[in-house]
């Protein structure tokens, strides 16, 4: 019994901080010449990797373009090498958290206006991950429905009044 425990402890020590996705991200930031601190956090339906440190703006890019490209590549590498079996979300300096809050707040305001005026609203084009945030944020409302239309990169969310009422 005590032997088993010893082995477990050693194993834990060796693997505690090691994570294949964190290692990928660390190698990439190193190639950028950045000194990054990488932490991961379990969320409801994904694991979120936080990259923090000085001068991280370069990893975000214009409206998150670099961050989205990076996350896409990490997703492809993960799928090909089967590194981890959960959905990976990459964030830099909490950019996504801030952006998601902004998207949700705006979507709720838009939804109320759509329900009030009975007219659908087409939102600005955004990448799949951001559209997903809006669909989820409004999923539990019964006064509006959401869907996407158009082709990437011009695909956008439409918020429409729910039918069949009154």
């Amino acid at each position: 019994m005590s032997d088993d425990n010893d082995i477990d402890e050693e194993f834990d020590e060796d693997t505690e901080d090691w994570d294949p996705i964190a290692e990928l991200l660390f190698d990439i930031t190193e190639h950028f010449g950045l000194e990054a601190d990488i932490e991961y956090e379990e969320r409801k339906d994904h694991v979120r990797y936080h990259i923090e440190g000085p001068d991280m703006g370069v990893l975000i890019g214009r409206r998150g373009s670099t961050l989205n490209a990076l996350q896409f590549l990490i997703g492809v590498i993960n799928a090909r090498k089967k590194l981890v079996d959960y959905r990976v979300v990459v964030d830099v300096e909490s950019y996504r958290d801030r952006r998601e809050k902004q998207l949700v707040d705006q979507a709720k305001r838009d939804a109320s206006k759509v329900a009030r005026e009975g007219r659908e609203k087409v939102l600005a084009a955004m990448p799949a991950a951001e559209r997903r945030v809006i669909h989820l944020a409004l999923a539990d409302r019964d006064d509006v429905v959401t869907y996407s239309e158009g082709k990437d990169p011009d695909r956008c969310v439409v918020i429409a009044p729910a039918d069949g009422e009154e």
Binding site: I28, F32, L59, G61, T66, A69, F72, L73, V76
Partner: peptide, 11 residues
């Protein structure tokens, strides 16, 4: 994938 590689490398 090529597009994402270009975006990251250009950054």
């Amino acid at each position: 994938i090529a597009q994402a590689l270009r975006t990251v490398v250009k950054a």
